[in-house]
Nucleic acid binder design. Structure first.
Lengths: 251, 251
DNA sequence: CGAAGTTTTGAGGACCTTCAAAAGTTGTGG
DNA sequence: CCACAACTTTTGAAGGTCCTCAAAACTTCG
């Protein structure tokens, strides 16, 4: 748990993500990077934020993989999203007082924590940053809507394919890998919890996708040999990720 | 389609919703109500915004009921949320350039449309309003997460009960009715599209809930005779609606 | 009053789950 | 570096939830 100070390149991944959608002024950039933070190395399968607890600061992912999940009293778990390097995975803690879901790592990760106050201040002082945060929350919401569609209206095989396409797409957008070949640190049980299925059926769905030539799996490596074929099968259209970025401001 | 001008009480329902979570300064309130708008009467089952189209202005609900839904190329439809009087149902159009879902009325409704520019300006000029918008988007996102849990991990009966509890809760919070007795303008087909089920199975689920004494249905009227019993059965906990409101600003 | 839409019921079938166990992989300590 | 334990993936068999197809009863609206 090292402390702030000095050249804060730990905040670069989230800044880069925000700036993919539109450049900031250099003052805004400077103010963003000047936020005090704490950097933490988190090991695999460790909770960063727990459902029901009061929020304390906003966590960004510098590197690694994190999921958001919700628990049912009866024991069921639903993963509602996966996040990778650069994701502002915990922006909601800036305004929401109590966490409605759990954040947990799926591989050794580095997490950068900034106080809510600093987030809210930089959002207020630099409206371009405030809008960028708001836009990020909107895209998040859009992704949740797509997951509802996935869970409610797609078959297990389509659902599985769709998730793997989304992960590839986001990985490429974050500059981590080509979209059709990436590392997948999640177990099939994790995938099952994200897909609203059982491990057994995820395994069978993956097997079917492999047999159809739509997918190659090698340990933790996903290869999508024909992106368009799988995208067609799973009805994947990246519109919901809003790659077009936010509305440009007219004068 | 009457025009702006004069005392704008059409914007009162959305303003009231925002102020439930924390009062605005009188200048902020005045600026909010001073936004130019268009008021439209929309008949039942009419699209306000269509998936894939460019966004043009933000719609608020003055009165009525509206759903958000996404379509599958294969014809499936998934409703991802329902909205009632006061809901800022279309805030995302302020920043998202192309709509990722459709907004449609479920009863005759009055909708108030404000330009994105006016929204962004009032959010910038009054940070308290900007934060309030952002908070609203966050709560929206939280509700989508809960729907993912609902679709992925609850049985048809639990799912159905959970939705009816959410609608009652929101209806009471909006000051429209007691939570355990409200009007439901949606058909069972609509509920099916929201629950990821078929009409047939929604009908059977409702029948079962009725037989268990957890629910009374009288035409368009829902009565929940024992709120706690149904809430226990459906594992409904309103935490995800964040009734506690946004973080109060220190200093 | 007739037409269109909505709700309800029945019967059969499909998709996904549950339970169980084997095979394969990863991590740890001796 | 091997041995062993814990975990993960895979396969099989049986069963249940939810779907499909079909049609009747009921409601709404012009």
């Amino acid at each position: 748990m090292s402390n702030s100070l000095a050249t804060s390149h730990c905040l670069s991944p989230p800044l880069a993500k925000l700036e993919r959608r539109g450049r900031f002024s250099s003052e805004a950039r400077k103010a963003f990077l000047a936020m005090p933070y704490q950097r933490q190395a988190i090991e695999t399968r460790t909770d960063i934020v727990r459902e029901g607890e009061r929020t304390r600061g906003c966590s960004f992912i510098e590197s690694g993989t994190v999921s958001r999940s919700k628990l049912l009293p009866s024991g069921g778990r639903q993963i509602v999203s996966f996040h990778i390097a650069g994701d502002l995975v915990d922006l909601q803690s800036a305004l929401l007082i109590v966490a409605d879901h759990t954040l947990r790592t799926h591989e050794p990760s580095f997490v950068v924590k900034v106080s809510e106050r600093a987030i809210l201040k930089v959002a207020e002082d630099f409206p371009e940053i405030g809008r960028s945060f708001w836009f990020d929350t909107m895209v998040d919401a859009s992704i949740f809507r797509e997951w509802s569609l996935n869970l409610g209206r797609r078959s297990a095989r389509e659902r599985t394919g769709h998730l793997l396409l989304e992960l590839g797409y986001k990985s490429e957008a974050a500059g981590l890998s080509p979209r059709s070949e990436y590392r997948l640190p999640m177990t099939q049980l994790d995938l099952a919890d994200a897909l609203g299925l059982t491990v057994v059926h995820v395994c069978r769905s993956l097997k079917w996708l492999r047999e159809m030539g739509l997918l190659h799996l090698d340990r933790t490596r996903v290869v999508i040999p024909d992106w368009d074929a799988l995208a067609h099968f799973a009805q994947f259209q990246p519109l919901y990720l809003h790659p077009e970025g936010p509305r440009a401001l007219a004068s």
